[in-house]
Lab assay of single mutants.
Amino acid sequence: SASLEDVKTAVLGLLVILQTKLYTLPASHATRVYEMLVSHIQLHYKHSYTLPIASSIRLQAFDFLLLLRADSLHRLGLPNKDGVVRFSPYCVCDYMEPERGSEKKTSGPLSPPTGPPGPAPAGPAVRLGSVPYSLLFRVLLQCLKQESDWKVLKLVLGRLPESLRYKVLIFTSPCSVDQLCSALCSMLSGPKTLERLRGAPEGF
């Protein structure tokens, strides 16, 4: 439990870093931090981490990651405290083949985003970082199938509809809506759902 406290501190630090690096160059920093966060949550489900502190780590990670939004130009952003989304000039939600690297070039400044813009690109060529939603999407499927803490599952179920409104997140990387529907149906009809959940409301 003591070591998990250190892990929790590290994860919180990564969330803060991602919130900053999403809007700064090099964009590969945001890509790497995002991948680290998603990989860490995957390990929770792989090794069945069920301690309360592990659940709190997942809760905080999902609470942040499910706020990711994308505009029509595929640029990622996060809402501010007033709910207004600021889109990044440097990070996009497109999935890119590994051989192309985590970044790609664009020939010049991008068109203005639909929300308040981030800082304008400084040079004639900007390297865009790929932060594909499919990585998070796979972890969300694991959550629906394996999550043991009701608070975490409730958060994910509550945030998913709003995330799905931003269709560009889903359609720019390999996210299977069929698998999502299947996971939701299995969660509702499967007898093991109630068996594994802690803290579920009576009558769920």
Rank of each mutant, 00 (worst) to 15 (best):
E5M: 09
D6N: 01
K8P: 06
K8L: 08
T9W: 04
V11F: 07
L12K: 15
L14K: 00
I17D: 01
L18K: 01
L18S: 02
K21W: 01
K21Q: 06
K21P: 00
T24P: 01
T24H: 15
L25A: 15
L25V: 10
P26M: 02
A27L: 05
R32D: 03
E35W: 08
S39M: 09
T50M: 09
P52E: 12
A54M: 03
A54R: 01
S56W: 07
I57L: 09
L67T: 11
L68Y: 03
A70D: 02
L73C: 13
L73T: 13
H74C: 06
L76D: 02
L78M: 09
N80Q: 10
G83N: 09
V84F: 12
F87V: 05
P89L: 05
Y90S: 08
V92W: 05
V92G: 06
C93F: 03
D94M: 04
D94Q: 06
Y95T: 08
M96I: 15
E99F: 14
E99D: 14
G101Q: 14
S107A: 14
S107M: 15
L110A: 15
S111I: 14
P116L: 14
P116A: 12
P117M: 13
G129N: 10
G129L: 05
V131K: 03
L136Q: 04
L136C: 08
R138H: 13
V139N: 06
Q142S: 14
L144V: 09
D149F: 01
L153W: 02
K154H: 09
L155R: 09
L155W: 05
L155K: 09
L157V: 02
G158M: 14
G158S: 14
R159F: 03
L160N: 01
P161D: 05
E162G: 08
R165I: 05
K167R: 10
L169D: 03
I170P: 05
P174A: 08
V177P: 06
V177Q: 03
V177F: 04
D178Q: 06
D178C: 05
L180C: 03
L180P: 00
S182W: 06
L184H: 01
C185I: 12
C185G: 04
L188M: 12
S189I: 15
K192R: 09
K192M: 09
T193D: 06
A200R: 11
G203F: 05
G203E: 09
G203L: 05
F204P: 11
